[in-house]
Write a protein that binds this DNA or RNA. Structure first.
Lengths: 224, 224, 224, 224
DNA sequence: GATGAATGAGGATTCATTCAT
DNA sequence: TATGAATGAATCCTCATTCAT
């Protein structure tokens, strides 16, 4: 690592170019246009170089999955250190939304590939590392539950689904999407926990408020 | 007419065998094992016969999508005629669960293919026909909402996501899954409408009633 | 032959329908659309029936070649009996033009196939039966020549080429085409024979005249 | 640059080998044996290599057409610069003969394919570039004519037909063939113009000299 | 005889991967 | 190390032909 840093730098550049190219092709052409020759060509490197850095097409895909998940991982890392579980959850949701909306199709397609590629040596999927954090946050927010991992996996699935749905076709602000995801998550959890908590509105600051009463005024619709 | 019937029968059998084979291969091998030769071989017919009935591989896929969606369509038809919107919603959920759990992977993969195959053409996907029914049912249950189609699309996406998640890996009873979907749906809607639904979704037990109160004190976030 | 005439009639009808269909497909789709299934379908018979009457695709093609050449054969037969060689030649030319222009593409494509199919058991091509007649006519018109068969084969090739060229693209009257063919033929022969004969204008009657002199009055063009 | 040249050389070799193989197979097997696998095999390259250089079978065919027409184009270029129209015409005829006789069947089959492949696209066939040159030469030789392009297209068709006819079966010297073509061409033109050409075409002997003069009196038209 | 479902060899094309330079 | 030409197994699809009904 200390030696031949310039080389390392070039290698890193090449790897980055390949992954960027792969993502772009997946986004614009779908799986059917996703082949190593196209990826190498668009990356501006030879096919031989691609195979120098990645032993196979699947290796490229896996690296892309990891790279795409990276910003998510950053958010996960940040969430872990937060005191306020609400802020932590918001951080995760925001990261998920940003991630999925940046390249909606890539995210969806990589989901598929991830399932296939993780079959043999599973364990370290993005979800795998995400789940415990979510469990931790939710437990802080809603208390213990004997099926918490299952519920949190559901939350992740729901979040992903809403992002995917938002990605194809309908264009809307990420704020609106975030709001809907928050409602889906808290609605689900409240049903599961049998609690009248209400979705906190987007206010990433205010580390604490006594929500239940004060938030009532947020209701609209037939009720109040 | 008697002349043609045995022939017709054979043709129908062949078509059915091909679709069954296609579904089986998608389920067990994934998209990577899904090719016309394999489908024909497993169906016990020659590749030529496959192409006698389906003009292309995509045609097979589309027919499979239609066939797999058929039971869903039946449920949709039934739900349309129901007076009780709660029962109608349950019918739809049950159908979705049954459909997705029968061949979890097929359902997920066909979703992907459907997106690709419907891009150029019309919009009569399974979701397309499902959405208005859901909108109608939800409106009866929760009242009007200016973004009802969007919300209902979310409901469909959520349902699908939970089924998909249930499909891969964890095995559980469809009753439990149905219950979780119901909670996700009603939780989301209650958040969106800010109102308790006219009819609560699941009353399977009394067990989960009491925790609701006692756990209250554990909440952080908006509450405390 | 005397018995089961009705059956024979039906068979003939079927055969005729198949050949007509084959010609139509060759004309409109070219060799690439010319396959037995399409021919049978367009003829309104089953593929099985086609193979009942023709042992193979090549058999269909050969029958089509024979059928298409039939009107040419009629003209050949007529030409043989004519006294006036000029009228005979005109008959042949007219037949060739009519034949080639009715279905220009079929004629050209069958030419190709004929060459392939006649390789093994050649001898009875349309040209084969045509050549001696042409030789005979030309000899009467222009006198003997030691390479007459070669010259006459050239005449046939020239005629065919001009018809083919007329078939694709440029539309013109068959009278004009006939005139050009006549000029090409007589021009060639005059060069070969070193003779001042001039192309007779189209006057299919006058069974006999001493051509060289009497034909003078027939000249047109810039002169007279 | 030195880096690329050997590679370029290899690529060129491969392309040349493929075209040579294609021509050879067309010549010996006809269209029925003309498929990409056979072409690649005979060229000593893999099928993949063939598709590296040619996007499709038709692309191979078109490249072959262009390659086969190349020597013709050279002759056309040479003819354009010639002062003496007779020499120019002879150059063209010789080129046509040499071209067609080198691989008679290839030339004929490519003619067919050319018609099919040029249908949709532009009109720059070999004939397309040839025609204006011929028109120019003929006009110099025989003077103006309101249908000169048509006549010259006929000349090209006639030349091609005689070459084709010479190609199949009968073997003869190209000198004899050239002579016959010259006679066909000038015979046709004299008929059309009703005039002796400014320059007689072939002077291989003295034998045909006297008739030309004596024939003059037979001409009508501009002359007499 | 007539039918048309079924067959499967054959042909076009793609693309992951290798390897000589 | 980089390159990109070459490879060939795999895949989609066609069509001449057969044969059970």
């Amino acid at each position: 690592m200390p030696r031949k840093l310039p080389t390392q730098g070039r290698a890193n550049q090449t790897v980055a170019a390949i992954l960027e190219s792969a993502a772009h092709i997946l986004e614009t052409e779908g799986i059917h246009g996703y082949n190593t020759n196209a990826v190498a060509a668009r990356a501006g490197v030879s096919i031989g170089s691609l195979y120098q850095y990645f032993g196979s097409k699947d290796a490229v895909t896996m690296a892309l999955i990891a790279a795409e998940a990276e910003d998510l991982q950053v958010a996960v890392g940040a969430a872990v250190t937060m005191r306020d579980p609400n802020a932590a959850l918001d951080t995760l949701i925001t990261a998920a939304v940003d991630h999925q909306l940046r390249r909606p199709r890539v995210a969806a397609l990589l989901d598929l590939e991830e399932r296939r590629l993780l079959r043999p040596a599973n364990g370290d999927s993005a979800t795998g590392r995400l789940l415990p954090v979510v469990v931790n946050v939710v437990e802080k927010l809603y208390g213990p539950h004997r099926e918490l991992p299952l519920l949190c996996a559901d939350l992740i699935a729901i979040t992903r689904a809403l992002c995917d749905a938002a990605g194809e076709g309908r264009r809307e602000s990420r704020i609106a999407l975030r709001d809907r995801i928050r409602k889906a998550i808290h609605g689900y959890l409240r049903e599961q926990f049998g609690v009248p908590a209400k979705t906190p509105s987007a206010r990433p600051s205010g580390e604490s408020r006594s929500p239940r009463q004060s938030r009532r005024s947020a209701y609209h619709g037939p009720s109040s």
